[in-house]
């Protein structure tokens, strides 16, 4: 059973930070609530009582997003549905519509925030891999000496382990800031046990940019989720592809490598196999999203020969 004594819905950042500063240890910040509320069930947290809940979803500064100087500022209350429905976000974050459509369902996405997903830091969380690929940073704010102070950390440093982040008491996530990459092709691969309301066993995000000849990888971004305690960015494979002529064989070769990075405790063989196929499919789909033709079965066979 989910119970609480008091519930605060601050409207401004300052108010929110003031409340955060005095939040008791067993109090909790809540945004969409889609991780916190279902946790209070038998078989998970059981009966969970919060003396204080601090709901940050109505904070004015946390609403919406802004795109400036090649970076997107995704404010903390931005729900997942925006990545599907907002044309500007779709264009600038090309791997996010795929991530969002695979994420929970339409109703959860209206509530669930990207910030909450990253703070929750589940190894199976879907937001982290595409955000890693987009060079995301997490902006944190707190009150110190009555002043709002902020710090920014790369996402890879923010998440330190399953369910663990560097977030400190009194601190709130104010925004996630990532690259805006219009003109890139993006894709998102995911497998779980079904096709809706599904938690990732493995997921992969890719972003690809073609050079003006359209035959060369100008830029490649790759990240994996679900296969290790923290999301993984595949810098070496990106490096291997960047500046190279696009061939199916090259993509196939590149996708063999990351299987070794699978560091999960369960389903290791399964994940290794999927990772290989997913890296390949993620790049291929991202290429298709840039306008490249869909590879045929014959291409695949040749590449894998």
């Amino acid at each position: 059973m989910f119970t609480y004594d008091s519930y605060h819905l601050p409207r401004t950042l300052r108010e929110a930070l003031e409340l955060a500063a005095t939040l008791p240890a067993d109090g909790k910040v809540i945004a969409g609530g889609t991780d916190i509320v279902p946790y209070a069930r038998e078989g998970r947290g059981g009966d969970v009582h919060f003396p204080v809940l601090l709901d940050v979803s109505k904070v004015a500064e946390f609403q919406g997003y802004a795109i400036e100087n090649g970076r997107a500022r995704l404010n903390a209350a931005l729900p997942y549905q925006a990545f599907l429905e907002d044309p500007v976000l779709r264009e600038n974050l090309p791997c996010m519509p795929g991530c969002a459509i695979w994420f929970a369902d339409d109703q959860i996405r209206e509530q669930a925030t990207l910030a909450g997903n990253l703070v929750n830091a589940s190894p199976a969380g879907d937001g982290a891999p595409p955000m890693m690929a987009l060079n995301a940073e997490v902006e944190l704010a707190r009150l110190s000496g009555g002043e709002v102070t902020t710090r920014r950390l790369p996402l890879g440093e923010f998440i330190t382990g399953p369910g663990r982040t560097v977030l400190e008491p009194g601190e709130l996530v104010t925004a996630v800031i990532c690259d805006a990459l219009p003109g890139y092709g993006g894709s998102f691969q995911k497998v779980g046990q079904r096709r809706s309301l599904v938690i990732s066993r493995v997921c992969a995000a890719a972003l690809v940019k073609l050079d003006p000849t359209r035959h060369v990888f100008e830029d490649v971004r790759l990240a994996l989720g679900g296969i290790a305690p923290v999301p993984l960015r595949l810098h070496d494979i990106e490096e291997m592809l960047r500046g190279k002529k696009i061939t199916r064989r090259l993509v196939a070769e590149a996708s063999v490598i990351p299987a070794d990075r699978v560091a999960s405790r369960t389903r290791v063989e399964y994940r290794r196999h999927v990772v290989r196929g997913f890296v390949e499919a993620a790049i291929e789909d991202a290429l298709v999203a840039c306008g490249a033709p869909v590879p045929s079965d014959r291409d695949r066979e040749e590449a894998h020969a």
Partner: peptide
């Protein structure tokens, strides 16, 4: 009670949500 089935769906300010997950 965990947002996994949709028997509790209602509109809140025009958006459909799972009311079992909403404080």
């Amino acid at each position: 009670g965990a947002g996994e089935c949709g028997t509790c769906s209602v509109f809140v300010d025009g958006k459909l949500v799972k009311s079992c997950l909403m404080p």
